[in-house]
Design a protein around this nucleic acid. Structure first.
Lengths: 351, 351
DNA sequence: GTGAAAGCGCTAACAA
DNA sequence: TTGTTAGCGCTTTCAC
C-alpha cells in the first residue's frame, strides 16, 4: 500500500509552492508558469506518481467531471446500448458516468435524481420515458445541465435526442399496406410512456392516410413479451379479421409470436408482424423479424454531445435531434393472401 | 435556481453550531445530541431543503459512497444484467455506481482504473474477463476493496463470483452424449479470457470422462456471432464427421447457426448445438436454443454483497462464490441418427 | 511569474 | 451534551 501523494509533496520535491504546482499541472493555467518550472513540476509529479484528487478539486471548483444517467432499466438492450454510447463519448471528454436505475418504482425518480445531484454531477441524462415529469423542473431548478434521450418533453425546456416515432410507424404501415394488408392492427406500448403515445399516434396517422379504420389497437400493460402476448390475444379475440400487426416494440412483437403460436397461427402466413427497435438477434428469431431499426448507441452518442454542449455553452439554445428510423424487412411480413388458416376467435390452442 | 444551502445555514436557522447539525443529521452520531435539538435541526434542514454535500464529506472522511465498475462492454446483455444486479444491491446500501467501459482497447484498463480511483471510489468491481491482470495488483497496491465478477484469478487475492464453467460444460457434454452423440466438437472462446480457457478445459475434461477424442476444437477470435460462424465453418471443413457442438457462448452458437445455414445444414437434424449463458430471447431463435443458463443478475447481486463485505470488514477472508449452471433443453439438440443430409466439406453453400 | 492566504462544506479531535 | 478549532487537497484571488 502506498501513501497518498498531494500537491504539497510534489511542491516540496520540485522546490516550489503548491499553487505553482497547481498552475503547472493544469493545462489551462500552465502558461502562467515558467517552462523550466513546468518541467520540474511535471517531473516531480511523475516521480511521485501524483494523481490529482477529484474530490478536493470538485469542492473547490464546483465541477465534478461526473455525469449522472437516469434510466429505467440497464438490462434492457435498448438502454444498455444508449448508456454505452453515452459512456463512449463522455469518457473521451474526461467524464465518468454514474448510473441510477429507476426500475418499476417511479416514485423514487426524484430521490435518485437528488442522489446524483448530491454527488455534484455536472450534468444529467434523463432516459426514463415517462410522460409526466417533475425531473425537468428539478434540473432547471437546480441549474443542472440535462438532456433527454429516447423521449422528448412537450415544453422543450431541455435538449433531446429522439427517434422519429411518427415516421417509423409510417414506415411500418406503408410496408404492410403495400403488401396488400388492409386490416392492420397495433399493439401499443404503455400510454404513460412517451414512446407509447407517440407510436400509437403515428400508427393512427399513417392509417388515416390510407383511409383505413384506425381502431384496431390494443395497449399492452408494459413493454414485455408477456404484455405483448396478452395484447395480441385480445386483438385476436376481438378482431379476428386482422391480417397484419405493427407492434410498438420488438418485445411486444415477440409476445405476439408467442400468442399466435398458442392459437396455431403462422407468421407471416396468417398474420404479418412488424416490430420496433431492432434489438439484438431479431434476425435470428423465428421468423426473422421485420422491424424498424433505431440506432440506440447513436442516440447515446448524440445525447452526450448535446449534454457537453449544454455544459460548455450554458446560453446555447435547446435543440432536439431527431434520428431517422429505418425499416428492416425480414420474414415476419408477407403479401396478403385470401384463404388462410381457419382461425375463429374460439380456435383451439395448439399447446 | 436555488442557492446552495450548507450546514451553516441550517445551524443558523436552528440556532446551533454547525457541528451540532453534523451530529444531529448523521444517524451514527445522532444520539450524542439532545433529542430536542435533533428535532430543531431536522426541521430546519427540511425547511431549507438542505442536502449534504458528498464531496465535502468525502474529502473529510475519505469515503465517497461511489463504487466503480470496470466492464468490457455494457451493451452485451451479459454485463448489462450484471451491472443491473450490482446497481440494485449497491443502491440499497447508499452507493452509486460509476461505470467504466473498457472496450477492445485493453491497454486502457489501468488508465480507467486510475480514473475511478481518482474519484475516490470506495470499491471496485472488476468484470473484465482477461486472464492477464495487473488490475488486481493495482487494487491491492492502492488498498481499494475489490471483487471479481464472471471470472476468478489464480492468486485468489480477491473475492470473486463466478459460474461453474467446468460443471457447465459437463452438463452440455453429458446431454449430448446421452443423446447418442460421439463426435462432439467445441467452439471455444478467446483464450485470453478466463471463460474461454475454463470452458475449453471443462469440455476436454468432460469428453475424456467418456473416453472420447477431445481434439475437435476451434477457437473463435472473439465472442461474436461472426467469430462463431467462422469457427464453425473451420470445424465443418476439418471435421465433417461431427454430429454435435458445444459452444462457449450463445453468440458463438448463433454464429454456428449461421454457418450451418450457409452450408445447407439443419440444426438439430444434422448437428446438435448447445449454447452457453442463455442470454435473452434464445428461446425465440430458430431453433430454440438448448443452452446452459447462468444468472448474471444474480452474479451482480452477489458481487455487490461480496464487495460490501470487503469494504465493511477489511480483515475478512477472501472467498469465491461459485454459481451453479443449469441446462436448459430446447430444440437445438436431438438424438443422434444415422444417414443425415449429405454434407462433405465441399458441399455447395445454399445462399 | 511566483508565493501567500483564504476557503469550498464538511467532520472529528479536543475543550468546555 | 455542545461549541471551538483545525484541516481534508485543491484553486484562485491578491500581493509581490
Amino acid at each position: 500500500m502506498r501513501r497518498k501523494v498531494t500537491m504539497q509533496h510534489v511542491a516540496e520535491l520540485a522546490g516550489v509552492h503548491p499553487s505553482t504546482v497547481s498552475r503547472a499541472l493544469n493545462p489551462a493555467t500552465r502558461d502562467m508558469v515558467h517552462p523550466d518550472l513546468v518541467n520540474k513540476v511535471v517531473d516531480a509529479a511523475k516521480k511521485l506518481a501524483y494523481r490529482t484528487d477529484f474530490n478536493a478539486k470538485t469542492l473547490r471548483t464546483g465541477r465534478s467531471k461526473l455525469i449522472g444517467a437516469l434510466v429505467p432499466d440497464i438490462s434492457s438492450s435498448l438502454f444498455a446500448a444508449i448508456i454505452s454510447g453515452i459512456n463512449h463519448r463522455l469518457g473521451g471528454a474526461g467524464y465518468s458516468v454514474v448510473i441510477a436505475e429507476v426500475g418499476d418504482d417511479t416514485s423514487r425518480l426524484l430521490e435518485l435524481a437528488h442522489g446524483l445531484a448530491d454527488h455534484r454531477v455536472d450534468g444529467l441524462i434523463l432516459g426514463n420515458v415517462f410522460v409526466e415529469d417533475p425531473l425537468v423542473d428539478f434540473c432547471i431548478d437546480h441549474a443542472i445541465p440535462a438532456v433527454l434521450v429516447n423521449r422528448a418533453e412537450s415544453g422543450s425546456r431541455l435538449s433531446a435526442v429522439i427517434s422519429d416515432d411518427l415516421t417509423a410507424m409510417q414506415l411500418a404501415v406503408d410496408h404492410l399496406h403495400s403488401l396488400g394488408h388492409r386490416q392492420i392492427a397495433h399493439i401499443a406500448g404503455p400510454q404513460e410512456q412517451s414512446t407509447g403515445v407517440l407510436r400509437r399516434r403515428g400508427f393512427k396517422f399513417a392509417l388515416t392516410g390510407f383511409e383505413l379504420a384506425d381502431s384496431l389497437i390494443e395497449v399492452a400493460v408494459d413493454y414485455s413479451r408477456e404484455g405483448g402476448a396478452a395484447a395480441m390475444l385480445r386483438l385476436l379475440d376481438r378482431h379476428p379479421e386482422i391480417t397484419a400487426v405493427a407492434a410498438a416494440n420488438d418485445l411486444l412483437a415477440l409476445g405476439a409470436y408467442d400468442a399466435m403460436a398458442s392459437r396455431g397461427l403462422k407468421c407471416p402466413d396468417d398474420i404479418s408482424l412488424v416490430g420496433h427497435n431492432d434489438i439484438p438477434h431479431m434476425d435470428a428469431v423465428h421468423p426473422p423479424m421485420t422491424t424498424v431499426r433505431i440506432s440506440h448507441k447513436e442516440m447515446g452518442l448524440l445525447a452526450a454531445d448535446l449534454l457537453l454542449q449544454a455544459i460548455n455553452e450554458p446560453g446555447a439554445a435547446r435543440r432536439n435531434i431527431v434520428l431517422p428510423p429505418q425499416l428492416i424487412i425480414r420474414q415476419s411480413t408477407s403479401a396478403f393472401r385470401q384463404g388462410r388458416t381457419n382461425r375463429s376467435a374460439g380456435a383451439t390452442a395448439r399447446t
